[in-house]
Design a binder for these strands. Sequence first.
RNA 1: CGUCUCAUAGUUUAAUGGAUAAAACGAGCGUUUCCUAAACGCUUGAUCCAGGUUCGAUUCCCGGUGAGACGACCA
Length: 595
Amino acid sequence: MLRPMSVVAQIKEVTARAIKELFNHELNANDVLVNATKPEFEGDYTIVLFAFVKQLKKSPDTLGNELGEYLIKNHSTIFSSFNIIKGFLNLAITDYYWIEFLQSAYSNASFGIKEKNGQRVMVEYSSPNTNKPLHLGHLRNNFLGWSIAEILEVNGYDVIKTCIVNDRGIHICKSMIAWQLFANGATPESTNTKGDHFVGDYYVKFNDELKKQVEELINKGIDKETAEKEAPIMKAAQQMLIDWEAGKPDIIELWKKMNSWVYAGFDATYKRIGSDFEKTYYESNTYLLGKDLVEEGLQKKVFYQKEDSSVWIDLTKDGLDEKIVRRKDGTSVYITQDIGLAEQKQKEFNAQRSIYVVGDEQNYHFKVLKLICQKLQLPSADGIYHLSYGMVELPSGKMKSREGTVVDADDLVDEMINISKQKTAELGKVKDFTTDELNALYDTIGLGALKFFLLRVDPKKKMIFNPEESIDFHGFTGPFIQYTYARIKSILRKPEAISRESGVKNLLPLEKALAIQLETFPASIEESAAEYDPSKIAIYIFELAKTFNSFYAEHSIANAETEEKKTVRLQLAQLTAQVLETGIGLLGIKVPERM
RNA sequence: CGUCUCAUAGUUUAAUGGAUAAAACGAGCGUUUCCUAAACGCUUGAUCCAGGUUCGAUUCCCGGUGAGACGACCA
């Protein structure tokens, strides 16, 4: 099926053709700059003429007039009138065009969704550590990763969502040793604690105990650095890591038991926030990957060995530093595992692109990772893309677990759901709902507010979260969009078939504004995929909802002046509802039928 | 010391080099016999400083100031 081109794409194309015919000048359609016309001028879309004034050696006015007249003469179904102001050619689009658009799109359930393009993409996100529960930063990561995967999916890609669980290493051993020392056999069940929080508590206990021991050693005259290394509990953790690597049965058993507690907790949280993965990798299985590639790199002379037999790569010519890829004791480092995992993913899924949703503190790491893979000429190399996002910070700065300022994911979700419960009760609009229906509604609204809050900002930018101020339910928020949707549904609930031919010839300004905005939905989805940026969609659906609300306040739909108007407004309402649902769905947010 | 990010109304955020910089929250005023007032309308207010490129700069380049991240055989 041939997808109809967007108005903007058509304007570009037609303009390029016009310039070729009128002035015999070749122009790429993409070089035509088309903007929405500013509200203070007459017209819908504007061509910026400056760009080709020079090449064509014409004044903007002459050029604009010739072009404008050509467009109206040759494409009268699209363009109705034009005016030129200071080098801007403002074009008015015919009502006919918008009415046709509405009739073709209002009942098209896949409006904005592309067909499969045969390309595969992997999206890795979440990446939790099994020594503590998820926090606000993980939420931004999860929502972003899930949303990007979804956005790529509707853009035609075959998407594989993956997660690498950091389930081994010294930090896990810290929780384990603390449990051995202080738990007296307690379990999540015996203490009625969620598994990930239970294990996280022992990680905190470890650090408390370590601090105590370090202070004692310092009082004995040992310097801080040595004290931290020599504290008995730290030595015990390090010994445990060695035992783990050696596969000592009782350690492995304890490790498995504690991790299983954590996974039960993670699963509950993921289920609640709607995160899922097609494939989960565990670092305990992948940490040895990449060793072969070190050998290969040495042979290819991409890597070199120092006197102590450690292996390095020299990236100084690329403006970076030297980087170790294998320790002198033969063990691999973080980056080596990632090289190995990149190849592993490539072998398993053969994706054209591999996206890593990881915080911007690791920008350097991913730059190095991609560069090394390229130098090794690995097939996965060029497809590596680090989707770097900014940290979530508090007004006081970074969240610090040691200072207890970390905003816990479960707590925050609870709070959001409670607020939505409270507000729903205050408004009292759904008193006839069953308990199940109410609980589902609270989840929808509370999570909607939270996800929208975290996704409405450009991922690249760090964001401030103030725990003192609760996340808003008014204005540029998830509930605003959900509410708009629910209002439309209440109109559409009255059983009434919407006929395709409305018969109207003209649109009122607010009807037209809505139609124009609806028409750009596919472009908005494309843009957010091209830039890996869900906030583009968040902004789009917010503006759409706003336009609809203005329209709704001004014009009656069910009691429209004429049957024709009623039909065209029902089409507008139905398409708006559908676009809002699809759009906000790409952010992982549900819409309620009533609220 | 070096590399890289960021700096826009009181606050949180928008703006492929294009017209008089756009919203939300906050503050103030108003809107409901009629499809959901979690809404709508009006008022208020900003590009860190100094140069440069350009017909045109929030956007690109140079310098400065301020904030952050990274450059660890941690991940």
